[in-house]
Simulated assay, not measured.
Amino acid sequence: MRLTTMTDYSLRLLMYVAQRPEQLCTIAEVAAAYGISEAHLMKITHQLGLAGFIETVRGKGGGMRLARAPGEINLGAVVRSVEPDFNLVECLATGNTCTLTGQCRLTAIVSGALRQFLDHLDGHTLADVLPAHGDGPAQARTMKLQPLRRRPAVSESGK
């Protein structure tokens, strides 16, 4: 399974904002920190706001902050709110046209794996993914940000 870029960026945005509870963060600063598109982050910010994970303040001096404490933001809920679908195989999709439907047990196995994946995420909050520095509260922790790096493509031979 692979999460979409939108989910990845959503989690990164939440982590960035969580580490700066004393300030309003802007789309421009998050985009600059991660080297990603402001336009893409604008869509993500809107969606996270609608889902109740962040609050936004418009106008000069505006920005965003968490709507709840990091320990109250469930990672499974974030992923479910951002991912467009979880149709890992065709038989899980609406409008399934797989000729094996009804004769194959793959659907149950893949559905079980997806359930376990989401259950695992449900067991964690945003506070769990913030970097640990000393014994201070998760909200006050700071993390050195690194730009996104793409994984090198794997050749067809797997090497």
Score class of each variant (00 low, 15 high):
24 L>E: 05
75 L>V: 00
48 L>G: 02
48 L>P: 02
116 Q>P: 00
83 E>F: 02
56 T>I: 06
71 G>E: 11
31 A>E: 05
32 A>R: 14
24 L>V: 03
147 P>V: 14
90 E>N: 09
32 A>Q: 12
5 T>R: 14
82 V>Y: 01
102 G>S: 04
83 E>C: 02
27 I>K: 06
65 R>Y: 09
143 M>C: 11
106 L>E: 15
113 A>T: 05
102 G>C: 02
3 L>K: 09
72 E>K: 12
107 T>V: 07
81 S>L: 00
65 R>E: 13
139 Q>H: 14
66 L>P: 09
72 E>H: 07
95 G>W: 00
12 R>M: 15
109 I>W: 02
47 Q>K: 05
139 Q>S: 15
66 L>M: 11
45 T>Q: 04
136 G>S: 08
58 R>N: 05
26 T>R: 13
101 T>M: 09
140 A>W: 11
115 R>H: 09
85 D>Y: 11
55 E>Y: 06
137 P>T: 15
7 T>S: 15
79 V>C: 02
76 G>Y: 00
30 V>F: 06
130 L>S: 07
37 S>F: 02
100 L>E: 13
2 R>L: 11
103 Q>H: 11
63 G>S: 05
154 V>S: 06
36 I>L: 07
34 Y>H: 10
151 R>D: 10
96 N>F: 09
25 C>P: 01
104 C>Q: 05
138 A>G: 03
24 L>W: 13
91 C>E: 11
21 P>H: 07
61 G>E: 04
123 G>C: 01
28 A>D: 15
42 M>H: 07
149 R>L: 11
45 T>A: 07
133 H>A: 14
101 T>S: 12
56 T>D: 05
16 Y>C: 02
80 R>L: 09
107 T>H: 10
38 E>F: 06
3 L>N: 09
80 R>S: 01
42 M>N: 08
119 D>L: 00
145 L>H: 10
85 D>T: 09
138 A>F: 04
99 T>R: 11
152 P>N: 06
4 T>F: 10
103 Q>R: 12
84 P>Y: 02
33 A>W: 05
29 E>M: 12
27 I>F: 08
79 V>F: 00
106 L>W: 05
132 A>N: 14
52 G>Y: 00
126 L>N: 10
12 R>W: 07
21 P>W: 11
12 R>Y: 13
30 V>W: 12
125 T>N: 03
104 C>I: 08
129 V>A: 05
37 S>R: 02
51 A>Q: 06
78 V>A: 07
110 V>A: 09
